[in-house]
């Protein structure tokens, strides 16, 4: 599969190591529709290709939005992109979050670090159809206050009466007056009906493990817990073999899995 050329319309600095690209199709590629939780393979000319989740609004198919953390050769080269530059896009790939199945339920979003990026499309979808959902809580944990992603949007969302937004950091800085602690400490403070709540979790595996434990303590059903997994990916279409996770291919069976489906391998190390 060939990457399609997209033009960088805007580069937004998010934190010291993350940035957001807004892309538009060239060559008459118009809209880009995707489901919240899906990802694209992003290609930099001659440098390489990386899987990056889509973090924009699924209702706005004219612009493709990716938030990227610069951690390797390819993502660091993407950090240097400027308006007008070209980037290659293959996708969208994978299975996303159960936003339709969650209608009529309370929704609990638990994110760690850059894990908020693949959940932002869920927030846009929930807020555009707010009346279809019950209580909504976003619990977000990150390392330090300066690592908080989408802080403007989190503040806007926090100002709404129909949303619970709670943010915590592992280490405070001297002007931080907010919560300190791991994200699981926020779970007892969130208000939702455990029997009807759908939980969507994205973050480091260890964070997801403890989050699930905490949710189960509160009585959230395993069948209502969904997690997004990360593995090495080269093809995105299920035949390079790199993203195997037990019997699944994360690229096509995931990245979002109902916890029930992977529960039997979730706690096995190095699987």
């Amino acid at each position: 599969m060939l990457p399609h050329p997209f033009t960088v319309e805007r580069v937004r600095r998010e934190t010291h190591d993350t940035f957001t690209l807004e892309l538009k199709g060239t060559n008459g590629i118009g809209g880009f529709s995707f489901a919240p939780g899906q990802f694209n393979m992003l290609y930099r000319f001659g440098t390489g290709e990386v899987p990056i989740s889509i973090s924009g609004d699924p209702e706005r198919s004219d612009t493709l939005v990716h938030t990227i953390r610069a951690v390797g050769t390819v993502t660091e080269s993407m950090e240097r992109l400027k308006k007008g530059d070209i980037i290659g896009v293959r996708g969208p790939f994978g299975r996303g979050w159960p936003v339709l199945e969650a209608r009529g339920c309370d929704v609990l979003i638990v994110a760690g670090g850059i894990g908020l990026a693949p959940l932002r499309p869920v927030m846009y979808r929930l807020l555009s159809r707010r009346e279809q959902y019950g209580k909504i809580a976003i619990l977000y944990g990150t390392r330090t206050p300066s690592d908080i992603l989408y802080s403007k949007e989190l503040e806007q969302w926090r100002s709404r009466f129909d949303l619970q937004v709670r943010v915590t950091v592992d280490r405070g800085e001297k002007d931080w007056k907010g919560h300190i602690g791991v994200v699981t400490t926020l779970i007892p403070r969130a208000s939702f009906d455990p029997h009807e709540a759908v939980a969507m979790i994205c973050g480091p595996e260890v964070m997801m493990r403890f989050t699930i434990r905490e949710l189960e303590k509160r009585g959230v059903r395993r069948s209502n817990i969904h997690v997004s997994m990360e593995r090495n990916m080269k093809c995105g279409i299920g035949f390079c073999g790199h993203c195997q996770y037990g019997p699944t291919f994360v690229c096509k069976d995931g990245p979002v899995f109902p916890y029930e489906k992977i529960e039997h391998i979730f706690r096995i190390r190095e699987i």
Binding site: L2, P5, T7, N27, F45, G84, D85, I86, G88
Partner: peptide, 10 residues
């Protein structure tokens, strides 16, 4: 040209 790769690539 002004852009590093043409819209036609690859």
């Amino acid at each position: 040209g002004p852009h590093e790769a043409s819209p036609e690539y690859p």
